[in-house]
Amino acid sequence: MNMRFIPILTLLFVLTAACEVDQTQEGELPEVDVDIDTEAGQAPEYDVEWADVDVTTTTRMVEVPKVTVEMVEEEVEVPVLDVDWPQDYGEPEETTFMVEADVDQEAALEIEEIYTTGQRMVVLARLEKAGEMLQNGQMLRVSDQVVVNAPDMDVRYYIIGDRPEGISNTRYRYISDRSEIADVLSNGRSIYTK
């Protein structure tokens, strides 16, 4: 077999591996005479049936969050911490640590403490639901923030309280009380306490 036909046969095999192929005519290689007279050859012919794929849609009832958040600007006092970091921590810059939750009743969310372990910042907040339930599936977003001049390091957020329903409330780890992370806090130093 002529070596030039091997890549062509390999390509045909790859292209036809995922479909049904019926050969409709035999192939024939050209005849070669020693004195270089040739007769025309004939390439094989194929009928190719590709996989039949139908794409449709259907209607299903699924639960989707419908949250209306009205953003308004208000003047509030935000704690700002100016921490004197050791030089080997790197250059500190103003960083905002923020926690927020979408709740279906009146609630308060406050950052209680911020710890540093040297390689990580730990932000500990508390969510207290203490109000009336909102009507018609309405949601309320509660939040708190503290500004710290801090070097670039890993930040972990913990919220003491029950996790509210909803996909938007999965960004933070919710714990029942601070004893769940006592080992993390024991290795750190508090730089903020409310």
Rank of each mutant, 00 (worst) to 15 (best):
120 R>C: 03
152 D>V: 05
120 R>A: 05
7 P>Y: 13
48 V>R: 09
139 M>S: 04
35 D>V: 12
165 E>M: 12
112 E>M: 06
68 T>D: 14
187 N>P: 04
100 E>P: 00
121 M>K: 01
87 Q>S: 10
154 D>R: 08
157 Y>G: 02
178 R>L: 07
124 L>Q: 02
140 L>R: 12
29 L>F: 15
131 G>N: 11
5 F>S: 07
77 E>H: 11
177 D>R: 03
41 G>N: 02
57 T>I: 12
30 P>D: 14
134 L>F: 06
115 Y>I: 04
99 V>T: 02
17 A>N: 10
73 E>C: 04
117 T>E: 08
88 D>E: 15
123 V>I: 14
140 L>W: 13
106 E>N: 12
100 E>W: 05
23 Q>E: 15
144 D>V: 00
157 Y>S: 04
113 E>G: 11
67 V>N: 03
140 L>D: 12
156 R>E: 13
149 N>Q: 13
108 A>I: 13
120 R>W: 00
191 I>Q: 06
110 E>G: 02
70 E>R: 15
27 G>S: 13
171 R>A: 09
6 I>K: 13
187 N>H: 06
155 V>K: 01
158 Y>E: 00
171 R>N: 05
158 Y>A: 00
9 L>G: 11
25 Q>P: 03
157 Y>R: 11
111 I>V: 03
120 R>D: 10
166 G>V: 05
158 Y>F: 06
